[in-house]
């Protein structure tokens, strides 16, 4: 395969002979270097959860948050470059504000997803810019549409999900997710599962410290997106800790 180093991978506006745009693939590579991000869509709400890798004890606990509020009822979680994440959060907020100004109601998530993915896609077309090194999860809950969850890739393509993951341990997280039927799940359990998955996929050997962060938008929160909701986050962290302990326990028993 003619790939790296052949000169076809230096610009977003250039195809390789076998029909790939390598700059987009490389941008996706960047996403996988950062902590895992998951989104779970339950019966009455959506939870976004993040494994935030702590790189220095000098940082405040809230430094480098990967979960954003875009609208009253829309949350966003991002895996990838923090600077790109902040920037796209700003773009998404502008889109939401724009829509609200024109129609006096919150933007439907599908519409927001279309707009933001269109924006991200535009950065994959020209050599003058680079693709965004982020993968974006969007979540919302409202009375009419219920829970919704979308993911946007660095290529600008987007899909709706029942559960999805991005970042370092994307594969393991997917394996964990496939064990459950999230669509039937109440918010209480959903939150716990989120905690369990993030704590399970965290690799202590590679990154020592991490902070579990969570965004929740559900019927229980009156359709407001809450970042690190006190009770639910505590419940998720506890579920995660005990899941981790269980795993460690069974690992020890394994060889016997």
């Amino acid at each position: 395969m003619s790939t790296i180093g052949t000169g076809y991978d230096l610009s977003a506006s250039q195809f390789s002979p076998d029909g790939r745009v390598f700059q987009i693939d490389y941008a996706s590579k960047a996403v996988e270097k950062w902590g895992t991000v998951i989104g779970l869509r339950g019966k009455n709400g959506v939870v976004l959860a993040v494994e935030k890798i702590i790189t220095s004890s000098l940082h405040e606990p809230d430094a480098g948050g990967r979960i954003f509020t875009i609208e009253r009822n829309i949350g966003m979680a991002v895996a990838g470059l923090m600077a790109d994440a902040n920037y796209i959060a700003d773009i998404a907020r502008q889109e939401a504000a724009n829509f609200r100004q024109q129609f006096e109601k919150p933007i439907p998530l599908k519409h927001l997803c279309d707009r933001v993915s269109g924006y991200i896609h535009a950065y994959t077309l020209y050599s003058a810019v680079r693709p965004f090194g982020i993968s974006v999860l969007l979540a919302s809950w409202d009375e009419t549409d219920g829970p919704q969850l979308y993911k946007i890739e660095p290529s600008g393509s987007s899909f709706g999900y029942y559960a999805c993951a991005s970042g370092k341990a994307k594969q393991q997280a997917k394996t964990e997710m496939e064990k459950f039927k999230f669509a039937e799940m109440d918010t209480e359990t959903l939150v716990k599962r989120a905690g369990e998955i993030i704590y399970r996929v965290h690799d202590e050997l590679k990154d020592k410290n991490f902070r579990f962060e969570m965004g929740l938008v559900a019927q229980e929160t009156q359709g407001t997106h809450c970042i690190n909701h006190e009770l639910y986050t505590l419940s998720a962290r506890n579920a995660g800790e005990s899941a981790k302990d269980d795993d460690d326990g069974s690992d020890n028993e394994g060889p016997q």
Binding site: N98, R115, Y119, A122, L125
Partner: peptide
């Protein structure tokens, strides 16, 4: 609009 043009007189993302 949803953003600034990528360069002057250039395309606007979105």
């Amino acid at each position: 609009s949803s953003g600034y043009p990528l360069w002057s007189n250039g395309p606007t993302p979105g």
